[in-house]
């Protein structure tokens, strides 16, 4: 067992060699033809956390999941409003891989939002919509009948419902990532994250910007936006090295949101940690300066609304 994975790696090498040998055997006199190298476009030049990325390492980009997004909204003081959620009837409209992936993320955020506000029947209905989309995407194991039954039996136990949402999302994302569909997994995450941004910006409505905790929380999403960009750039080519049109299209669709975020300033100081503090939970001390004008916020509101409406159509 100790060297099991080593054996598998070795087996992987044999597979690769075998495929290459077969490929060469099938070629006729095309020896020496060079593959075209296309570099990843740099989109950030300023000093930041991504500065010393080593492409040789395995890199993970993590966005707030639908459950975390819903939690962030709730802790910022958002109240429940079902009208902002994506209409359940829309689930029938999604026919492309891109629309299914984005809306799987969107419905999962809506489901998480309903769950956190103890909306039992709405949670069940949204779980049903996510199940339908996941099944259509070939991830039937993510939300099986057993999961639906467990959900129905525990609808009034928020902790259990949250655990079910977390597990089903883990099932979907692990299935996609382990079946060379990282691009689809990225679109699911982006859909869910944009839905959180949409709910947040809609809830602010025409409230004053200054001293508004929810506005600050939304502005801080600028930090996650740079991760969205990196994640999408990383998936611009699929496992076969072909350009992924859905991802390219999505990057273009995000331009207005990127432009709006650029007008919002978010500056963070370095983090200090008290080495002598023996508490179980370490406190990371730092400061964040946020500068958002009413005009910049309105622009972000409009960009996110347009983007999200385009996703759910």
């Amino acid at each position: 067992m100790r060297n099991y994975y080593t054996t598998l790696r070795f087996a992987g090498l044999i597979i690769l060699s075998g495929i290459l040998m077969l490929g060469n055997a099938c070629k006729s006199g095309k020896k020496g033809q060079e593959g075209k190298e296309v570099g990843i476009e740099d989109f950030l030049t300023e000093e930041d956390i991504f500065d010393d990325i080593d492409k040789a390492k395995k890199i993970f980009y993590s966005l707030p999941s639908p459950l975390e997004t819903a939690m962030l909204l709730k802790s910022a003081g958002v109240s429940y409003n079902e009208e902002v959620l994506n209409d359940l009837a829309n689930v029938e409209k999604y026919s492309t891989n891109k629309s299914k992936a984005l809306n799987l993320g969107i419905y999962t955020t809506d489901l998480s939002f309903a769950c956190l506000f103890d909306q039992a029947q709405t949670s069940l209905a949204y779980m049903d919509a996510t199940k339908k989309l996941a099944t259509e995407m070939g991830i039937s194991d993510a939300i099986d009948e057993e999961t639906m039954k467990r959900l129905e039996q525990n609808l009034n136990k928020r902790d259990v419902v949250m655990d079910i949402i977390s597990e089903t999302f883990l099932n979907s994302s692990s299935y996609l990532k382990e079946n060379d569909q990282q691009d689809v997994a990225a679109m699911v995450l982006v859909g869910g994250w944009i839905e959180g941004l949409y709910i947040g910006t809609q809830m602010v409505g025409s409230q004053p910007i200054e001293g508004n905790k929810l506005v600050d929380r939304i502005a801080e999403q600028k930090l996650s936006f740079s991760i969205v960009e990196r994640m999408l750039q990383d998936n611009i080519k699929n496992a076969r090295g072909e350009e992924n049109r859905d991802i390219v299209e999505l990057i273009n669709e995000l331009h207005a949101t990127k432009a709006a975020f650029e007008k919002i300033e978010v500056q963070t100081s370095s983090v200090k940690i008290d080495e002598n503090d023996t508490a179980d939970v370490a406190v990371l001390k730092s400061q964040t300066k946020i500068n958002v004008t009413p005009e910049a916020f309105k622009e972000l509101q409009a960009a996110v609304q347009s983007l999200r409406n385009n996703f759910v159509q």
Binding site: I49, L223, T268, A282, L284, S286, Q287
Partner: peptide, 12 residues
């Protein structure tokens, strides 16, 4: 590792 932040941060 358990932690909380006084202000939001990107971490690696």
């Amino acid at each position: 590792w358990d932690f909380m932040l006084e202000s939001s941060q990107q971490l690696k």
